[in-house]
C-alpha cells in the first residue's frame, strides 16, 4: 500500500545553512507519528516542506504517491487539499466568526474557492457540515464568536474543526499545544487524536513533551541537527535516547567547534 507520507533523502537549506541533511521516512496510512526534537533542529522546516512551502535541494517527498517535487501549481493545490495542517498559533482569521473560519476550510475542495465558502453564499450542505465540524470539537455553541473571544484551547478546537472541514487524508500538526496550559493541552490532544483515529487519518505531529508523545503516538521519530536519530515504535523508544535528542549539538546552526565539548 502506498504510504501516506514518504520522504527520501530530503535536503533543504537556506543559503549556507543546511537545515535538513538527508531525511528519510515513510508513514503508512492510518499511523499516528510524533516528531520530537529540540528547537532549531529542523522540525518546522520538515513540516513546511511536506506542505510544499519549502523548495527541496534534493530528495523527494511523496504524499499518497504524488510527488511534490514536480507537481504543477494545480497538482500542488490538490495535494495540499488532502493534507490538513494544525498550527501552533491556530492561525484563525481574527476578524471572522468561528463558523466562518471553519467554512473557509472547504476552500481548497471547492471549484469557486472563496465564493463557495462565504457564510452568505455557501451551499446549505457546506453550512451544515461546518456546524457538524464545530459540534465534533464541542464548539457549536460558540459558532458566532470571534477568535479573540475564545481561549487558546478553544481557538485550537476551532482550527481542528477547520481542518476537519477540509476532509483531509493526512494531518500535519506543528506543535499544536505548545501555547496552551497543561489542562487545555490534554483536552486538545485527546480531541485531535480521537478525530484522527475515528476518521482513519494518518498524522505527523510535533510535540515538545516526551510524556505526551509516549501517551499518544504509535511511533516516534526523533530529529537532531537536521537528521533523524530515532525512528521506533513507541514501546521501543526508551527515555534515555529521547532525552539525548535535546543534549549537545541539537540545532542545525550550532557551531562545529563545539562538537568536541
Amino acid at each position: 500500500m502506498t504510504p501516506a507520507i514518504s520522504c527520501e533523502q530530503v535536503q533543504v537549506g537556506y543559503g549556507d545553512l543546511q537545515v535538513l541533511r538527508g531525511v528519510s521516512f515513510d508513514i503508512p496510512v492510518g499511523q499516528g507519528v510524533v516528531l520530537l526534537g529540540a528547537n532549531g533542529c529542523g522540525k518546522s522546516t520538515l513540516l513546511r516542506s511536506l506542505n510544499g512551502l519549502e523548495k527541496l535541494q534534493s530528495g523527494r517527498i511523496r504524499i499518497h504517491g504524488d510527488s511534490l517535487h514536480d507537481a504543477s501549481r494545480r497538482d500542488l493545490r490538490r495535494i495540499r487539499c488532502s493534507m490538513g495542517y494544525v498550527f501552533q498559533q491556530f492561525n484563525l482569521v481574527p476578524q471572522l466568526s468561528a463558523f466562518q473560519n471553519v467554512l473557509l476550510g472547504a476552500m481548497g475542495r471547492q471549484r469557486f474557492g472563496l465564493l463557495s465558502c462565504l457564510g452568505l453564499t455557501a451551499s446549505a450542505e457546506e453550512r451544515e457540515r461546518a456546524m457538524d465540524c464545530l459540534d465534533r470539537v464541542g464548539m457549536a455553541d460558540r459558532a458566532l464568536h470571534r477568535p479573540s473571544a475564545l481561549s487558546g484551547g478553544q481557538q485550537q478546537r476551532v482550527a481542528i474543526a477547520r481542518m476537519l472541514m477540509q476532509a483531509p487524508r493526512v494531518v500535519i500538526a506543528d506543535e499544536p499545544v505548545a501555547s496552551l496550559d497543561p489542562k487545555a493541552e490534554r483536552e486538545v490532544l485527546d480531541l485531535l487524536w480521537r478525530i484522527v483515529r475515528e476518521e482513519g487519518l494518518s498524522m505527523l505531529c510535533t510535540l515538545h513533551q516526551l510524556d505526551l508523545a509516549r501517551d499518544y503516538a504509535d511511533r516516534i521519530i526523533g530529529m537532531k541537527a537536521g537528521r533523524i536519530e530515532i525512528d521506533a515504535p513507541v514501546a521501543e523508544a526508551d527515555r534515555d535516547r529521547l532525552d539525548a535528542l535535546y543534549i549537545g549539538m541539537a540545532r542545525v546552526d550550532a557551531q562545529h567547534d563545539g562538537e568536541a565539548a
Binding site: 493545490r77 490538490r78 493534507m83 498550527f87 492561525n91 474557492g113 477547520r162 477540509q166
Partner: peptide, 11 residues
Amino acid sequence: GPSEALTSTGA
C-alpha cells in the same frame, strides 16, 4: 499565519 493556513488547505 492565517493566509498560510488557508494556502495549506489548497486554496
